[in-house]
């Protein structure tokens, strides 16, 4: 079975500029019917038709899992990225038809938790918007700590405070407010689960601090937002299909494989789920591994690559695809 093949026809019903960097997009079914139920932390993959190219980007659902008349996502504009966020910001308008995927959750709540402690950085707030709605609906115990640059970029801080009051704590860089994480962790009741979503550096900091404080790894949950990075174009031979492809500067290897008509499995398109793992038959050059799936040893071995986020520089690369 091919993952991600369950596509949903949707209409963009609203596009809202939340602040200077973030826009929110609302999707509904063309007939107004309800969309599939989902759980907080789930994402959808949005198909973007960009002048003959297809981009497939994952975005966390931030609407309430308790109300699926529409789905909402928020996209932070990345001016130096590969163009997916720019496409969403500049080309997607209300009334437009788009295709989205069924929800997939790779960052779900551990429902055994006595308390859910959430740490967000920047646009990493979005999965928590859905999770806090879900938990509030069932009387769950949670607390959210949210770091952002300034009041102007504190995306949804106001909404969350309005909904959940003192459970929400905001830290603004430009006011020199800083989360005292060791102290926060030290004061948690037994049975607390920790969730973090934000920039890579923040995830590492939270995981390391929790580990140093003796938190079991099973109680620490994180979601990396590893968008594919642009890079130099490179050529690849797909041995099973017997074709050669070129991966463009703003294209991921996975997208180039799909553009050649192949249909490899995927779920996250962000280097964490492992679905698109591909064997390397031979290579002469340097791998630029950007995934969180393969082990360091596998990265060094040069025998495997995650085409959703990783790239290559060198003379030749032959893949088992």
């Amino acid at each position: 079975m091919k993952a991600g093949s369950n596509r949903i026809e949707a209409v963009v019903t609203d596009v809202v500029a939340v602040n200077e960097l973030v826009k929110r997009f609302h999707f509904e079914r063309p007939d107004g019917g309800i969309l599939p139920t989902f759980s907080g932390g789930a994402h959808i993959v949005v198909e973007m038709r960009d002048d003959g190219r297809t981009r497939l980007n994952p975005y966390s659902l931030m609407s309430s899992p308790l109300d699926t008349r529409d789905y909402t996502i928020s996209v932070r504009r990345d001016d130096v990225g590969r163009g997916g966020s720019l496409f969403m910001h500049s080309r997607v308008k209300p009334g437009q038809s788009m295709v989205i995927s069924n929800p997939v959750n790779l960052f779900s709540l551990d429902l055994r938790a006595k308390k859910h402690l959430m740490i967000a950085g920047g646009i990493g707030i979005t999965p928590f918007v859905a999770q806090t709605s879900q938990l509030a609906g069932e009387g769950g115990n949670f607390e959210l700590h949210y770091s952002c640059r300034s009041d102007a970029l504190a995306t949804y801080a106001d909404v969350l405070k309005q909904r959940h009051g003192r459970r929400i704590h905001v830290y603004r860089d430009d006011h020199d407010e800083k989360l005292d994480l060791p102290r926060l962790l030290a004061g948690q009741p037994l049975g607390t689960h920790l969730y973090v979503c934000g920039p890579a550096g923040m995830i590492t900091w939270v995981r390391n601090t929790a580990a140093a404080a003796g938190w079991p790894a099973e109680t620490v949950h994180y979601e990396h937002f590893a968008a594919p990075q642009p890079g130099k174009p490179f050529d690849v031979t797909l041995a099973v299909s017997g074709i050669g492809i070129r991966v463009g500067e703003h294209e991921s290897l996975l997208e180039a494989i799909e553009a050649a008509g192949l249909d490899p499995p995927y779920l996250c398109r962000g280097g964490v789920c492992g679905q698109c793992e591909t064997n390397v038959i031979s290579s002469d050059g340097k791998f630029l591994h950007n995934d969180h799936w393969l082990s360091e040893e596998e990265h060094r071995s040069g025998c495997k690559i995650m085409p959703c986020v990783s790239r290559f520089e060198g003379k030749s690369l032959v893949l088992e695809r």
Binding site: A3, N6, F38, N102, V104, P265, C273, G274, Q275
Partner: peptide, 13 residues
């Protein structure tokens, strides 16, 4: 196990 963990909504097996 790898297959089952990747099972998606709307696509039962």
């Amino acid at each position: 196990l790898k297959f089952l963990m990747a099972m998606q909504q709307g696509q039962p097996a």
